[in-house]
Design a protein around this nucleic acid. Structure first.
Length: 462
RNA sequence: GUCCCCAUCGUCUAGUCUGGCCCAGGACACCGCCCUUUCACGGCGGCGACGGGGGUUCAAAUCCCCCUGGGGACGCCA
């Protein structure tokens, strides 16, 4: 068997979106699983819409996800000569012809066909014309068979077949001489030695035309695998309307690449009941036979759950690396508070994104915290004033000031005063964190340190 | 409209190829209980699906047909 070579071929007209990312992932996984190569091809033949920024955004997205590629990326805009050669070949062999029909004429016929309930397709008007009116603009069309069947065995969908009579003579070169998509993909995939094409099933209808082109060009067609599309909640094709659809947007919102990879892999592919996969496991298990045939709906909640999971699994140090800049950008000086990694240790079970983690961590570096109004009225009362005072002065003497010692002190304190923990805990929590939700109170005190603890408690006394 | 593809809990899915082990399993979400000074985490439990109709068969979520529903394509875009 020849060595597997897959490709991801985005057109640089925007960012890397969720759907594209999954296609890239499947190609990457397939190549890695089979010990083959994964390459990139930038489909920038549409000069109007293609931008350098988009190319960078796509590279950035892939890089963030950890999808590395094996060769220098190809750019279609630099391969014009190759395409022109192939068009010439077809023309010389009589497998393509010049079409002088105008765009307007074509549009009109298309509209009419639709109106009459027919499938709009080129009527072959210029197919057999012998003359070549030199001064009129023309496109070049591929002369496709009008009878017979074009069928192929899709890796995902199984056998798919089309009547050739359904197909028409597609334009392979525009009036300005530039080659069109369906033609260049074939030339590219053939000349780049791509063995397996895994792409969205919106390309399923293009496949028979492309196969015909492979045949005309006497190239062997690769294997095709058409992955069902990812839909939005309204079951429509995922688009900007559905909110965040760019992978980098998720990076910015505090998602971990591993969570995104895991989520995307499981959307449309499965390995029994397993939900959580390391990258190595994905490479080990991934193959085309377990890819589902039906479209899936993008479910942000499951992604979020995976993110929370991988945050818990991440080391405190790696999370610290991620959120340190966010906290510092917020104006906080990390030297003014606890060791960030230690703080993360008590916080990370309570967040679903790293953004949230950073947000939560911030208050531990603040000199002055803002106390939630409702929490204050409920838990900071005249009665608690006395308790807090005594607590603060008591803790002032504490040494060492660690979690165990603090806990021992509290237990002793409430026993002495005949109090219950639920009388003291909430008040201290509100004083220290400004709210009613936080890690264990002893953990908070220990991590805050004596100075901040005492001063925050004193400040909370009314 | 025409062609192509698809159809299991709200969602992602296992099971379908190789019919019986499935009055359908897992996960997210949701609800409840437990753990707990709070919020989370975690543990336990609950809710919840084979789109409909015909066949084939001793037996169908699984095979066949029709219907319905959904998606995609129909560009001198990719």
């Amino acid at each position: 068997m020849t060595k597997v070579k897959t490709r991801f071929a985005p057109s640089p007209t925007g960012y890397l979106h969720i759907g594209g990312a999954r296609t890239a992932l499947f190609n990457w996984l397939f190549a890695r699983h089979h010990g083959g190569k994964f390459v990139l091809r930038i489909e920038d033949t549409d000069l109007e819409r293609s931008t350098r920024e988009s190319v960078d955004a796509i590279f950035e997205g892939l890089g963030w996800l950890g999808l590395d590629w094996d060769e220098e990326p190809e750019y279609q805009s630099r391969r014009t000569d190759i395409y022109l050669d192939h068009i010439d070949r077809l023309l010389k062999e009589g497998k393509a012809y010049r079409c002088y029909c105008s765009k307007e004429e074509l549009d009109e016929k298309r509209a009419q066909a639709m109106a009459e309930g027919r499938k709009p397709k080129y009527d072959g008007k210029c197919r057999e014309r012998g003359d070549q009116p030199g001064n009129r603009p023309f496109t070049i069309r591929f002369k496709a068979p009008t009878t017979g069947v074009t069928a192929f065995d899709d890796m995902i969908k199984g056998r798919v077949s089309f009547e050739n009579s359904e197909l028409d003579d597609l334009i392979i070169a525009r009036t300005d001489g530039s080659p069109t998509y369906n033609f260049v993909v074939v030339v590219d995939d053939a000349t780049m030695g791509i063995t397996h094409i895994i792409r969205g099933d919106d390309h399923l209808n293009n496949t028979p035309r492309q196969i015909l082109l492979y045949e005309a060009l006497t190239y062997t067609a690769p294997e095709f695998g058409h992955v069902p599309l990812i839909l939005g909640e309204d079951k429509k094709r995922l688009s900007k309307r559905h909110g965040a659809t760019s992978v980098t947007a998720y990076k910015d919102m505090g998602y971990l690449p591993h969570a995104m990879i895991n989520y995307l892999a499981r959307l449309g592919w499965s390995h029994g009941d397993q939900e959580l996969f390391s990258i190595d496991e994905l490479v080990k298990y991934f193959d085309s036979d377990q890819i589902g045939k039906s479209a899936g709906i993008f479910n942000p909640e499951k992604l979020l759950w995976l993110n929370a999971h991988y945050i818990k699994e991440s080391s405190n140090d790696s999370l610290a690396e991620l959120i340190r800049p966010i906290i510092e950008d917020g104006g906080q000086n990390l030297a003014d508070g606890p060791d960030l990694a230690s703080l993360i240790a008590i916080l990370k079970d309570r967040v679903k994104t790293t953004t949230e983690l950073a947000e939560m961590a911030k208050s531990y570096y603040l000199e002055d915290i803002e106390i939630d109004g409702a929490a204050s009225t409920k838990f900071l009362t005249l009665e608690t004033n006395e308790i807090l005072k005594a607590l603060a002065s008591g803790m002032e003497m504490l040494a060492p000031f660690d979690e165990n010692e603090v806990e021992r002190f509290f237990k002793e304190f409430i026993a002495e005063k005949g109090l219950k923990m639920n009388k003291v805990g909430p008040a201290v929590r509100v004083a220290l964190t400004g709210g009613t939700a936080s890690p264990g109170i002893f953990e908070v005190i220990a991590i805050l340190g004596k100075d901040k603890t005492v001063s925050r408690i004193n400040r909370a006394i009314r």
